[in-house]
């Protein structure tokens, strides 16, 4: 485990940026402590020998069921847009994105 590398403010800011959550300076330093404590506690997993163990993504014992290729949904523009905090006609809108 990537142990003992204490979280610094830059790491907290980087993951907050990845998660698109704005943090104030005070919050960054508080979270550095909290997240560091949680991650430190999690490091107890270092004790477990997992050699030769396949990772388990889901306890579901079946495999994926497939549906038929039939159009059963859509044609509900108003319902899809009804909760939108901003719209123009039948589009959602966001501040202009520059590519």
């Amino acid at each position: 485990m990537a142990s003992a590398a204490p979280l610094d403010d830059a790491v907290v800011r980087r993951i907050a940026r990845l998660a698109r959550i704005r943090l104030g300076d005070e919050e960054v330093s508080r979270l550095r402590g909290e997240l560091g404590a949680i991650l430190g506690w999690i490091e107890q997993l270092n004790e477990v020998d997992v050699s030769g163990v396949d990772p388990l993504a889901s306890v579901g014992q079946a495999t994926l069921a497939m549906r038929a290729d039939v159009v059963t949904d859509g044609d509900q523009t108003e319902a899809v847009l009804a909760n939108a905090p901003a719209r123009a006609g039948t589009f959602y809108t966001v501040p202009k994105v520059v590519e």
Binding site: V48, V50, L56
Partner: peptide, 18 residues
């Protein structure tokens, strides 16, 4: 995130299997 996935998430999935 890159660089931590194996150490945390993958490890947790293996412990989950155990």
């Amino acid at each position: 995130s890159a660089g931590y996935y194996d150490a945390y998430y993958l490890k947790a999935q293996k412990v989950r299997a155990l």
